[in-house]
Amino acid sequence: MGNVTSLERPMLERCVKQDPEAFRWFVGRYQRAVFSLLGRMLGAAAPVEDLAQEVFLRAYRGFGSFDPTTNAITWLLTIATRLALDERKRRKLSLAPIEDADRVPGSDKWKNRELGLAIEEAANALSDDQRAAFVLLEFHGLSIAEISQIVGAPENTVKTRIFRAKEHMREALSAFAPGSAS
């Protein structure tokens, strides 16, 4: 991931000093990335907004030890990933209920819904570690080295987890792959 930009750095330095205006900027800038990670790590039924709030609270408290010359998004995703992994251990997460109105076979909405459920089901079959590595690589563009740091596992282990995760996801979602008969 890219280094911190010249515009970000003064704001991050202000965040380190717990300047509320700068922290408001920080939340606005990175909230979508945090929601994206938590949503995919925990599934549709999780209280993503509450957990995202907790991620930013932890970031706020932890800014004292943050180096503003380093990449804020990687640091924030580290916090979010660890919270998500803890949350997965803490409770069994279930899938979101399906609304009948969306269940009109053949409609686009129905197809999207079916695909969404299939993706979640496929992801639920991954181990927590596989899921974290997969989401961080596929949806956040992090490097293997960065993921290795975040999840605290050797790079080769991360690569294996990603390989297995992709293999499983492709197989589980083969019915939805382009060119399939579904």
Binding site: F23, Q31, L38, E49, A52, Q53, A122, R170
Partner: peptide, 26 residues
Amino acid sequence: MKEPWADWKVPEPSANFTDKVMGAVA
């Protein structure tokens, strides 16, 4: 080629999410 999980949707932050966080922080 587009992977099938590329369409994995996630919830969006609510409009007042930043305010909520700021309220909790201070």
